[in-house]
Amino acid sequence: MKKFENLFHESDYSHETLFFNTSSLISFNKDYFGECGIFLTKDYILILNKKISRTINYAGIFDFETKNTLFGRKVIFNIPIDNLTVEMDFNFDKDRKQFLSKLQELMENKENEIQTIIEREEYIQEQRKNMPYEELKKLKELYDLEILTEDEYKIKREEMLKDYL
């Protein structure tokens, strides 16, 4: 694993925070790339060896399966957005279990983060629907007619918009 850690630290991804790392045999769409370092960051899986440097965004992983073979413990990812199947073949079941446990945790965190963003955007859109457009127009008219000073206008406008922006 040390050789892959060195590759990681020499890579463009060295600034990323690592949550887990291990190694396994890797193939992409049945093309075999040999042993690779697997690094889990906040947003993606990073797969590295001297031949390849590949990231797989958690949002692109729709399903995966596990499969036991005579000599290995596989995890197979289907990533339709990239038309990609990734096979990871772990030597030991404990390595695979640790990898899957941490991956599931990170994917759930990412899903929650995305859901929070979606809910926030929906809230903002709903607030904008309820924005007091007519009242703002009237306020602007009062300012244009010089009934309100610029300071009074700005204060009142900010007060009216504080819940919407």
Rank of each mutant, 00 (worst) to 15 (best):
N6P: 01
L7C: 05
H9R: 14
E10I: 12
E10C: 10
S11W: 01
S11V: 06
Y13G: 04
Y13I: 01
E16P: 00
F19M: 06
F20E: 03
F20D: 07
N21I: 10
T22I: 04
S23K: 14
S23P: 02
S23Y: 15
S24W: 03
L25M: 14
L25Y: 11
I26F: 15
S27V: 03
N29Y: 04
N29Q: 10
N29P: 03
N29R: 07
K30M: 09
D31N: 15
F33Q: 10
F33L: 08
G34I: 14
G34Y: 12
C36K: 06
C36Y: 04
G37I: 06
F39D: 07
T41P: 03
K42F: 10
D43R: 11
Y44S: 13
I45W: 07
L46R: 12
L46P: 06
L46Y: 05
L46Q: 07
I47K: 05
L48E: 02
K51R: 13
I52C: 12
I52T: 10
R54Q: 10
I56V: 14
I56Q: 08
Y58R: 09
G60M: 04
G60V: 02
F62A: 06
D63K: 15
F64V: 05
T66V: 12
T66C: 09
T69V: 06
L70E: 09
L70D: 09
F71W: 06
G72P: 03
G72C: 07
R73P: 03
I79P: 02
I79A: 00
P80C: 01
I81E: 00
D82Y: 15
T85P: 02
V86R: 02
V86L: 07
M88S: 03
D89I: 11
N91P: 01
N91R: 11
F92H: 11
D93M: 13
K94V: 09
D95A: 09
R96T: 04
K97E: 12
L100W: 01
K102E: 10
K102V: 13
L103V: 09
Q104I: 08
E105S: 03
M107Q: 14
M107V: 05
E108Q: 06
E108Y: 00
N112S: 09
E113Y: 01
E113V: 01
I114F: 03
I114M: 11
I114R: 08
T116H: 02
T116F: 01
I117L: 13
I118S: 05
E119Y: 08
E119D: 15
E119R: 09
E121C: 08
Q125G: 00
Q125I: 07
Q125L: 11
Q127Y: 01
Q127L: 00
Q127G: 00
R128K: 13
R128S: 05
M131P: 05
M131D: 03
Y133A: 06
E134Q: 10
E134S: 08
E135Y: 07
K137F: 11
K137G: 06
L139D: 08
